[in-house]
Design a protein around this nucleic acid. Structure first.
Lengths: 131, 131, 131, 131
DNA sequence: GTGGTCTAGACCACG
DNA sequence: GTGGTCTAGACCACC
């Protein structure tokens, strides 16, 4: 399990890991029933304190993303329905905020469209080349 | 000077204010040479401690966005050239990250385009109505 | 870590400590990766408020001299290259200013040389005795 | 009367002006009996507050560098004897401190001598060319 | 324990 | 009035 942790970010480490794992589950990169790494292993793997990972799993469990089998470990649960839609709306909001900032910096509708297209180009170029 | 401060955000108050003022300068909403509100007044205005504002101005000054005349007040300085370009690149990066997340959640290129257009629609509808 | 702090100097305490630590790093008396004393301990050690030390480390970090691992402590970073050269040029400038003052007080080139030699004598006498 | 005032220095403006005028007197650039500019004129000239200049003159007078003729103005007095020697010892001290810093940054006696000579060269080259 | 942030309140120098 | 500094003390997140 590969998660980038930024110790200098304002977002606390445990939150970074929580959303990273949530996103893996929502993106079906972790499938229902799959076992999560042990607290200790993940802690070493990510270079953080085991307490931090324990907190992460506690939060994920309380929000219904994972189940615990005491003495054995944690398993991916079925994510709450509509959680994916909610996540997408958050992304929409984030996108809207960025667009508003660009607009504030005097970028025209056209210029913003151009920037967006350039980024999309970069993100999807691999697929196109492959086909 | 109107700045929204969220005391419950992970981003510390002083940083929220720093970027808010930076963006006002970069967006030319504050123009070079203009006087900023005094530390104490802004502190009362935003409902934070004067020390917090002092820290904000200290950082803005060390980054070259404002200049202080001790005993008189703070003034908007000429922002380092290319700082606006750098800011726009940061926004591009943020947008790219959002797009990648959407893609990861199995949205197709087309679907992402649609979402983006819908947001742009919302942001620019006023202008279009006016014309 | 021994730093002399003069509370009656015009130079603010936090700046005195900043340059003292910077110079230790530039002089390789603190080596890269070495842990610095904790904020609280150094504060007690130097007889100043923890906030003052926090400010010191904040500045040193923003200038790239140290790195923080929140919850663990501060560590000496690799100082920006050429920072030592810049420091030496500052010293040259200071020396030039002194020489100009002496000249202004009607000291001849010869007399200034003599004063300089006398000082050098005092500074390096130990070494010479040893050899 | 030309004095450089640095509003961003840690040394308060009034002190900067005090030593500047003291040095002019010690260097005989202002001679005994000469009239000093009026408080208001000097304030405008240097771009500082008249109160600051008043304080400067007050200090200079209390240290015996100037006399006041109430209702008329300030005049250069005979500087306290040996004040010039004291000033030179201060300069020696400053020079010694610089040399010690250089030594700390691993410069050898030879290297320091070289730097000093280079600076002296620069300071005295005009004279030599003239002769 | 550590760093990071914030508040409250004080004093100084300067305008 | 202004900025600049410092103290005292608190709370949080993280190790």
């Amino acid at each position: 399990m590969k998660i980038k942790v930024d110790h200098h970010s304002d977002i606390p480490v445990y939150k970074q890991i929580v959303v990273a794992i949530k996103d893996m589950i929502l993106a079906n990169e972790l499938i229902e029933g799959e076992a999560l790494p042990s607290v200790r292993k993940l802690a070493i793997n990510l270079g953080v304190n085991p307490n931090t990972i324990a907190k992460v799993f506690f939060i994920l469990q309380s929000e219904g993303y994972v189940d615990s089998k005491p003495g054995i470990g944690y398993y991916v649960a079925k994510p709450p329905p509509s959680s994916i839609e909610k996540r997408l709306m958050d992304l929409d909001d984030a996108m809207r905020r960025i667009i508003l900032k660009m607009k504030r910096f005097a970028l025209s509708e056209e210029e913003i469209n151009k920037r967006f297209s350039a980024i999309m180009e970069g993100v999807f170029e691999n697929e196109r080349n492959r086909s």
